[in-house]
């Protein structure tokens, strides 16, 4: 579904990604871990098309289409969803109106008619329950005055509503207490299916106790330096990243 080949990117002349290779198939759950500043969030931003990043080399293919050629809104319409690490607040725009606009834009792109109000509300109710999102947040302005946990839950709720093929969760666990973490993880688990793929970016193994990944990748200095299964996450939790960095330096010096 998603193929990343030798991806290099920089921001303000600083090289951030230095040759990422990654293959993600339908229905897979990939976790990306790594120390601060390794390029995890940058990878998410480049995939979503944030314009302060410049891709200098490499390719990204999504369902056979060149993702890097597309405007951010078209990437979203094609089915790439980014759950933001820091969701923005938009005063005056109700959550409901925002979601209706987003959903109908995506539908229009796919040649589908706009959802009627009743159908839309039905869908909203259904998805609210699925991810345990309070209905009283629906008529409030988008993320305005939401707590950190509510904002993250809103991201997962939007994910449920927009039903993308690929969801990238950028440190969705940061700033969540244990209860909120469980609610968010449950929501993600309920959304997993054979058609949908996930990339979960996280610092901590804790999230991966709830969301069990198929693959764990370690990103360091703009490259994936190790790939494993969920056991790799446990090992990282125990030993930190230093042993991997040493391994890497040994390899490079050989």
């Amino acid at each position: 579904m998603l193929t990343i080949k030798n991806l290099h990117a920089e921001v303000e002349g600083k090289k951030i990604l230095k040759g990422i290779n990654l293959e993600i198939n339908k229905g897979e759950m990939h976790a990306i871990m790594g120390p601060n500043g390794s390029g995890k969030s940058s990878l998410a931003s480049v995939l979503a098309g944030r314009d302060n990043y410049t891709v200098t080399e490499g390719e990204v293919w999504f369902n056979g289409k060149n993702l890097l050629d597309m405007a951010p809104e078209d990437r979203a319409r094609e089915g790439v969803f980014l759950a933001f690490q820091y969701p923005v607040e938009i005063p005056g725009v109700s959550n409901l109106n925002f979601l209706k606009t987003a959903l109908n834009e995506i539908r229009a792109y796919k040649g589908l008619p706009a959802l009627e109000a009743r159908e839309f509300l039905k869908l909203t109710k259904e998805k609210q329950q699925l991810v345990d999102f309070h209905s009283n947040l629906m008529n409030r302005s988008l993320n305005e005055g939401f707590s950190g946990g509510e904002k993250k839950r809103n991201e997962i709720f939007q994910l449920a509503m927009l039903d993308p093929q690929l969801a990238i969760l950028d440190e969705t666990d940061s700033g969540l207490d244990i209860d909120a973490l469980r609610i968010v993880s449950n929501g993600v688990n309920k959304l997993r299916d054979a058609e949908k793929s996930f990339v979960v970016i996280t610092h901590y193994q804790r999230l991966l106790e709830y969301i069990i990944p198929d693959f764990v990748h370690v990103l360091y200095n703009g490259r994936i330096i190790k790939t494993g299964t969920k056991e790799l996450a446990l090992e990282l939790e125990e030993r930190g990243y230093d042993w991997l960095k040493e391994e890497l330096h040994l390899k490079e010096s050989v």
Partner: peptide
């Protein structure tokens, strides 16, 4: 006093809303 930020526009872009519509959405809400 508030400002339509690039972050807000990008956030809406990422949900499938183009920049022109994003500005209209924000302004109309306002």
């Amino acid at each position: 006093t508030s400002k339509i930020g690039e972050d807000q526009i990008f956030y809406l872009n990422q949900r499938g809303i183009d920049s022109e519509k994003a500005v209209a959405l924000i302004v109309n809400g306002y």
